[in-house]
Amino acid sequence: MSSGEKYVAAAYGVVFLVVLAYVVIIAAKLARLERETAELAELARARSAPSTSNG
């Protein structure tokens, strides 16, 4: 590859990588949100059935 081609590839590559990094961050956030929602679902269940809770 000529040096010109390398630079073009680098420029487009940077954009691509940043968007990919965004996807990774969103995926991590999704995992955290899933965990939180599960926790909150547990809390809600415990609340709505107090007689069977381990309180």
Partner: peptide, 17 residues
Amino acid sequence: TIFGALTLATGSIWAKA
């Protein structure tokens, strides 16, 4: 800010090229 950083990065690469 993200797109601004990308502007600087792509602009810098263009300047070097």
